[in-house]
Structure formats: structure tokens, C-alpha cells
Write a protein that binds this DNA or RNA. Structure first.
Ligand SMILES: [Mn+2]
Ligand SMILES: [Mn+2]
Ligand SMILES: [Mn+2]
Ligand SMILES: [Mn+2]
Lengths: 216, 216
DNA sequence: TTATTTTTTTAGACTTGTCTAAAAATACAA
DNA sequence: TTGTATTTTTAGACAAGTCTAAAAAAATAA
């Protein structure tokens, strides 16, 4: 149906669309580590296939059809990540690159059976929601630890930075998905945040607090 | 390391090498449903990478390095087929095309963990041996039903035709891997073969007998 | 052994996806 | 509002992999 390159572009455009309206050529180029001229070419191709809306110099947005394809790729990516962690016992910082390849395996029957085999999980190992086969998923409002008030209690539920180094850091601090925490104090000098988790206090930097998401 | 196209060529050359010495350009073209001129180009590229031995007009053979790559692809193919049948409950005639894509997922760590997850299976759903991570596997001498003598007893252990239609036929006749059979009679008129399995008699055509393999 | 057929290779072209360099459009600042 | 900086597009090229048509080599037949 769509080539591997097309799928990667659609996924990138979807991701960028979450924090912007129309997505710019340069944003896509940065996301995919490619050049703006390559993006222009590909975007024209996707527009011809009616997967994106595009007018010269105005950026792009996904059409309904394009969004459906993107959500399907994300579904596959997150289900494979879940499989790798839950069944093959990889750590959450090890699975992204493998899933990046596996998400392009095309059979929908395969992905639906994989979904059933694992009991229809709703979130991947990083806390991100797994769309169902129609592209629907529950949106839960998550907040960066850095944005909530003192004495707020919450459950660690996601990350904004998916890099291996950040995930490894969280793992070492035991700040993993599902843990209950209370925000106790913000140091005014450097905005470091002191949390309480399982009756012990942990201090995290402002950067970490920005990238760690909790459900209230 | 190697591109998808290169991997497919290496696998094809390996497969053809089993029944011939040097493999010809036309044989490879037929196996991959491509043109002889394309094969010449690719074979030159593989020769430069020292994965095949090639001299103009003389056909090709795999080098030690090329054989190792080929066996690794076959390992991945067969392990994924096993996964699809044993864990996702696909039928043995449904898995080949999916495995054809999955065999190109590159992580060796992934494949080794998949292998462990399934308990280190030694044969895929079609009875073919699964090489270990060093490319070693047990060679079992299998014989087509059409070549053994009357009153020979054996266990169905493999097929020479992997097409969905043949596998579906066998499934319908319950002639599946592991079944014990005895060759009772060959009809001289059309070489049809009469088998006994679980105390009932089954008649199969010469074509089927040619493509059904048993261990004695 | 010579002629014919078959196989293989070469030559040249096309597609997909990428790149660099230059031109055009847009955004921003004075 | 005019000039400069930035972004985006165009033009032209390249690598991988494929194809068709023609040439060369090898195999086969007379
Ligand atoms: Mn990921
Ligand atoms: Mn994830
Ligand atoms: Mn197969
Ligand atoms: Mn098989």
C-alpha cells in the first residue's frame, strides 16, 4: 500500500501535528534527519495520494485518510514495543529501534492477533496509548511534574523524552510507569523538584521534571 | 549490514545451491521472479562484498560468509513462522508471506530472545530445521513417500512444495507433521499411493506422494 | 565443424528516495 | 515600508534496484 519512506513521513507529520497546526517542511526534515528539499518532494507525493493537505509554502496537515494510516503505524509500533518488553523481557529503553523496523510489517491480521495474544493492552511500555484497529484511543490528560503545585499527588504515567538515556535514568531512580508520587518542594535556586515516593524523598532536576508526566 | 534485496538474493542462491552446484543466472531470476539482467548486476555487487563466488558465464556459489548470512535469514524466517503458528495460531499455509517480511528485521538480540521465548524449537511448522545462531542445524534424511518401498512405516516430517494450496490439501487429509503412516500399495495405472494412517486408508496421487516427506 | 539456439552480459533507461546549490517566496527588523 | 534573513521550492545530480533490447558467449544440433 504505502512504502516504508511514506509511512515514516506520515508518522512524523502526525507526531508534529500534535503540538502545532500546520507542520513546516523544516520541522519534518529535522524530525526525520533529512533535508528540506527531500521533504518537499515527498510531501508532494503524499498530497497526490490524498494523504496530506499541502499548498506551496503553507506547510502540511494530514487528511483523514493520512491520519488513519499514521495511527495504524503508531498502533503497530506500540504493540511491538509492548511485545518486546512483556514477552521478550527487553527493557523500556531498548525497544524503540526494533519497533521502528517492526512497525512496517504490513499484515493487519498479524497485528490484530498479536494484540489479542497480549490481551489488548491499552498503553505501551512508555505509557503512550495504543490505538485500536480503527485508530481510536483514550486521551488521558497528563502533566509534566514541573507544572503541578506543591503537595500534588499523582501516578507516573508517561514521558516526553523517549531517549534511552532519559529512560535509563528514570529506571535507575525507580521512577517507572505506575509509581505513586507526591510533589513536595521546588528549589527556587535551580527549580529542582523534590518528590516523595514510597516514603522516601527523591530530588530531580528541572529538565527531568519537565519530561516526566503524571496523571492526577 | 545487507539490504533487503541482497538478503533475498542470498537466500535464493542458498536454496538453489541445495539441489545444484553452481547456480545459474536464469535459475536465480526464476526463483525471485525478476530478470536475468537484474541478477547479473546484483551478483556482481554480492561478489564485491565477498558474499558469492562469481566468474562471468560460470554461475555463482555462496562464500562461507555468504552462507552464514543466508542461514541467518533462514533462521529468522523459520523462527517467525514458528511464532506465528504456535503463539498467534495461524495455520501452516498462512505464515510464509508474513515471515518473508519479518525475516528482514535485523536485531540478532531480538531473534535470540524470540528463540528462547519459544523454547528453542528445532523445526518450523513445515518440518524444516531451524539453524541455531551459528548456522548449525541437524540434517535428517527425509524421503518422498513416492520413493519408499511397500510396507515401509514412517513419520510425516516435511514437504517439498510449500504452496498454500498443497498445505491446505494435506491439512484437509490430516496428513500433518508428526503423523505415523505406512505405505501400503502403489497403483500401477497412475502411481497413486495408498497409505494407512491411524487404521484408515488414504489414497494420494503421485504428485502428492512426490512432495510429502517422511522420516523412516 | 559449422550453424543455430539458449544463456548471459552489456548498454541504456526508468523509479524511488535522497542530496547540494541556487532561486523564489515569505517572515522579520530597522 | 524597505531591506535582510530565513524558509521553502526548484533544478540537476546520484545510488540502488529494476527493466528492455541488443550484443556476446556458451551450449547444442546438424
Ligand atoms: Mn518507540
Ligand atoms: Mn513507546
Ligand atoms: Mn516459509
Ligand atoms: Mn517454513
Amino acid at each position: 500500500m504505502n512504502t516504508l519512506a511514506e509511512e515514516n513521513y506520515l508518522k512524523a507529520i502526525y507526531k508534529l501535528s500534535l503540538t502545532a497546526g500546520n507542520v513546516s517542511t523544516n520541522q519534518i526534515a529535522a524530525e526525520l534527519a533529512t533535508k528540506a528539499s527531500s521533504v518537499t518532494d515527498m510531501v508532494r507525493k503524499l498530497a497526490e495520494k490524498a494523504l496530506v493537505n499541502y499548498t506551496r509554502y503553507q506547510g502540511v496537515s494530514l487528511t483523514k485518510a493520512g491520519e488513519k494510516v499514521a495511527l495504524n503505524i503508531i498502533r503497530r509500533h506500540r504493540l511491538w514495543e509492548y511485545f518486546l518488553v512483556e514477552k521478550l523481557h527487553f527493557k523500556w529503553d531498548e525497544v524503540h529501534d526494533m519497533a521502528e523496523e517492526m512497525e512496517h510489517i504490513s499484515s493487519t491480521e498479524l497485528i490484530d492477533r498479536l494484540d489479542a495474544f497480549m490481551g489488548h493492552p491499552t498503553r505501551d511500555p512508555h505509557g503512550d496509548p495504543i490505538p485500536d484497529c480503527d485508530g481510536n484511543f483514550k486521551v488521558t490528560e497528563l502533566k509534566p511534574v514541573s507544572t503541578v503545585e506543591i503537595n500534588t499527588a499523582g501516578v507516573i504515567s508517561g514521558v516526553r523524552d523517549h531517549s534511552a538515556s532519559f529512560l535509563q535514568y528514570l529506571e535507575r531512580q525507580q521512577l517507572t510507569i505506575g509509581k505513586h508520587i507526591i510533589i513536595k518542594e521546588v528549589i527556587s535556586y535551580d527549580n529542582a523538584v523534590i518528590l516523595e515516593m514510597e516514603n522516601t524523598q527523591i530530588q530531580i532536576s528541572r529538565d527531568v521534571a519537565n519530561n516526566l508526566l503524571i496523571a492526577l
